[in-house]
Lab assay of single mutants.
Amino acid sequence: METPSQRRATRSGAQASSTPLSPTRITRLQEKEDLQELNDRLAVYIDRVRSLETENAGLRLRITESEEVVSREVSGIKAAYEAELGDARKTLDSVAKERARLQLELSKVREEFKELKARNTKKEGDLIAAQARLKDLEALLNSKEAALSTALSEKRTLEGELHDLRGQVAKLEAALGEAKKQLQDEMLRRVDAENRLQTMKEELDFQKNIYSEELRETKRRHETRLVEIDNGKQREFESRLADALQELRAQHEDQVEQYKKELEKTYSAKLDNARQSAERNSNLVGAAHEELQQSRIRIDSLSAQLSQLQKQLAAKEAKLRDLEDSLARERDTSRRLLAEKEREMAEMRARMQQQLDEYQELLDIKLALDMEIHAYRKLLEGEEERLRLSPSPTSQRSRGRASSHSSQTQGGGSVTKKRKLESTESRSSFSQHARTSGRVAVEEVDEEGKFVRLRNKSNEDQSMGNWQIKRQNGDDPLLTYRFPPKFTLKAGQVVTIWAAGAGATHSPPTDL
């Protein structure tokens, strides 16, 4: 069977082979063929449309019947899901209200924590001031004790010197008594010597008188005998007598002179000795008097100093007792304040721990409710997609609110971060928990396990030699990294520990 286009092609070929045509004729024939082709295509399209309309009418009838069946089946399910969705919305509203209440309680707890922290800071300042005052008082007490020990040692030294001076005074008084006794003995010996000298002088005078009498008696006897002796021998006898008398007189005078000289010499020697002894004793007595006077003056001065030191010692002891009493009071006050502060800190920690436990429990309940609501929403969306139902505006708002919801909680030295990733086909969620104590904190952990970043959050360098970082993902083997023995993380510095297959460059001390 030939198509209209094939017939047109045969006809035009025959005409062209029979007679030659002009260009205008050819153009018109071409346009006519195009119109015929378009008409044929339109006829085919109309036939196809008619057949499709016939099929569409049958399909519409089948769809109508199916919609009636589906509407009867879905009406009950939709009512049940609407009821469950209403319950879920009520639960979500109650959870939102509970969350708002918990946020209010958390803000209240934070305000109480700030207030307690301020009070604690003030108490710590008072405690530091009390400890500083206690240290000052202890230093003052130590200085006073040192001064007291010095004063006591000086007192003992002065008492020793006073005892020595008293012994010296006793010795000097004994020496003075001995000197006085020697002086009295010398004076007695001097008086005795003077008496003996006077006696010797009297004896000498008496001997002179006796010698004169004997001489006169001898002259008288000789004169008497001379009268009786011969005149011839008188001159010879007289001359001999005169010579004998002269010789006797000379001898007697020599003896008297020698005895006189010896007596005067002895007397002068004894007198000089007595005078020297008297002068020496008088000098000793003067020196003893002077030394005794000086000793008395020094004793008086030392007694005055001793009394002054005793007064100072009594004042120091009184002040020391006052300082000890004040120190005891300060210690009791400090202990009482410290006990009160520790009790308040313990109560505050217990209260904060209780509130944190309650908040953690409520947060766990909220997370469980969020997971249940998310599961209900997934089931509802799956059924709506299976039944090709359009979601209600309320469910769209709930989905938008659930997809944009995120929370971040800080308290008790722990930080909890939650992130949620969404897509049109599926939804997944993960959470990161970080707890830090000390100078070094974990700043970031790569989700794909490529690196771990640490930061020194203090103002001092931290030695991290032979420290270890351990990481384990589920049931995978435990991964451990040990820092070099001499590694030190500077204040405020960040160090990144890269995985072996991350392709990073080893560049200490920032990249390991």
Rank of each mutant, 00 (worst) to 15 (best):
A179F: 14
E264N: 15
R220L: 08
E247Y: 05
K219I: 10
R221S: 06
E257H: 13
E178R: 07
T266V: 04
E203H: 02
R190P: 02
N195K: 03
A193R: 10
N231M: 00
H252C: 10
E238K: 10
K261N: 10
G232E: 03
K208C: 10
E228S: 03
I229E: 14
R221F: 15
Q198Y: 08
I210R: 10
L204F: 13
E178V: 00
K233E: 09
Q255N: 01
L204H: 11
H222R: 07
K233Q: 10
K201E: 10
A193G: 00
A179S: 09
N231W: 06
K261S: 15
V191Q: 02
L241E: 08
L226D: 14
N231D: 13
E262R: 03
K180D: 09
Y211F: 09
I210N: 04
M200A: 02
M187Q: 01
A244S: 11
S212W: 13
K201S: 04
K260T: 09
D205V: 04
V227E: 10
R235W: 12
L183D: 03
L183P: 01
F237V: 11
L197F: 05
N231Y: 06
K180V: 12
Y211G: 07
L183E: 04
N231V: 09
L183F: 01
E228D: 09
A193V: 14
K219P: 04
L263Y: 08
E186A: 02
L241Y: 09
L245G: 06
E213A: 08
E186V: 07
K180Q: 01
K180P: 00
A179T: 14
E262S: 14
E217I: 08
A244T: 06
D205A: 02
N273D: 13
L204V: 13
Q258P: 03
E262T: 10
L271E: 04
V191M: 06
E186H: 02
Q207F: 00
M187W: 08
K233C: 14
R235M: 15
A242H: 08
K201M: 13
L241G: 10
L245T: 04
E238S: 03
A179L: 13
N273R: 07
Q255S: 08
V256N: 05
E247T: 11
N273C: 01
S239I: 14
E223C: 06
S212C: 10
N195R: 04
L263R: 06
F206L: 02
E228F: 09
K233A: 15
S212A: 05
E253R: 13
N231P: 10
A269T: 14
E262Q: 11
N231E: 10
A244L: 03
E186R: 02
R189T: 07
E257T: 12
L226A: 08
L245F: 15
D254R: 01
G232V: 07
D192G: 02
D243K: 12
D254H: 09
R196E: 03
N209H: 04
E186T: 06
D192T: 12
S239D: 05
Y211H: 01
V256K: 02
S239V: 13
T199R: 08
T218E: 12
T218Y: 14
N195D: 04
N273W: 01
V227K: 06
A193F: 14
K201A: 05
V256W: 13
T199W: 02
E213F: 05
L245V: 02
N231R: 14
K260A: 00
F237R: 03
D243F: 15
R225L: 03
R216W: 07
Q182A: 04
D192I: 04
R196S: 02
A269C: 11
E238Y: 04
M187E: 09
E202K: 02
K260H: 07
K260Q: 13
R225D: 12
K201W: 04
K201Q: 06
Q255C: 06
L183V: 05
L204S: 08
V256H: 07
E264D: 03
K201T: 15
D192N: 00
E223G: 08
Y211E: 06
L188E: 00
M187I: 11
M200G: 00
D254G: 15
E202P: 03
A193H: 00
E264W: 15
R220W: 01
E262P: 01
E217S: 12
D205C: 12
Q258Y: 07
Y211R: 12
R235I: 15
K260I: 11
Q182F: 15
D272C: 03
E238C: 00
E264F: 13
K270S: 11
E253W: 03
N209F: 04
E217H: 06
E253D: 00
D254F: 11
Q234R: 12
N273P: 04
N231K: 11
K261G: 12
E202S: 07
R221C: 08
K181N: 01
K260Y: 01
E253A: 14
R221Y: 10
I210L: 05
E228M: 07
Y259D: 04
L241V: 09
N209A: 14
Y211T: 12
F206S: 03
S268M: 08
H222I: 06
L197G: 13
G232T: 06
T266P: 01
I229R: 06
K233H: 14
N209P: 02
T224K: 07
L204R: 11
L248N: 02
K219R: 14
L245D: 05
N273S: 08
Q255K: 07
G232Y: 09
Q234F: 07
E186S: 13
D185R: 09
E228T: 09
L188Q: 03
E217Q: 06
E223A: 06
Q234A: 09
E264C: 15
A269K: 06
E223I: 09
A242K: 10
D230V: 05
T224N: 15
K233W: 05
K181I: 02
V227N: 14
D230R: 12
V256C: 05
Q251Y: 01
L263V: 11
R190Y: 15
R196F: 00
H222M: 07
L226G: 14
L271F: 06
D185Q: 09
E238D: 14
K219A: 10
L183A: 06
E228A: 09
V227D: 12
L271G: 03
H252P: 06
L188S: 03
E186Y: 12
D272G: 06
R240I: 13
N273G: 00
K265F: 11
K180R: 15
Y259R: 07
R240T: 02
N209K: 06
Y267V: 06
R220V: 12
Q258D: 10
V191C: 08
Q182V: 12
H252K: 04
T218K: 09
A250C: 15
T199G: 01
E178F: 02
H222S: 07
R221L: 11
D243Y: 11
D230Q: 10
I229L: 14
H252D: 01
K181M: 08
A179H: 13
Q251G: 09
Q258V: 14
L241K: 11
E264G: 05
E228V: 05
E202Q: 07
D185A: 02
L188A: 03
E228L: 04
E186K: 02
D243G: 13
E238N: 02
K181P: 11
A193N: 12
R190T: 10
E214L: 01
E238F: 10
Q246R: 12
Y267T: 05
S268A: 15
L245N: 02
Y259F: 12
T224E: 09
K219V: 10
A179W: 14
E186C: 09
S268H: 14
D205H: 05
E257N: 09
K233M: 08
K181F: 08
L226C: 11
H252L: 01
A269M: 15
E262D: 09
L197C: 12
A244P: 10
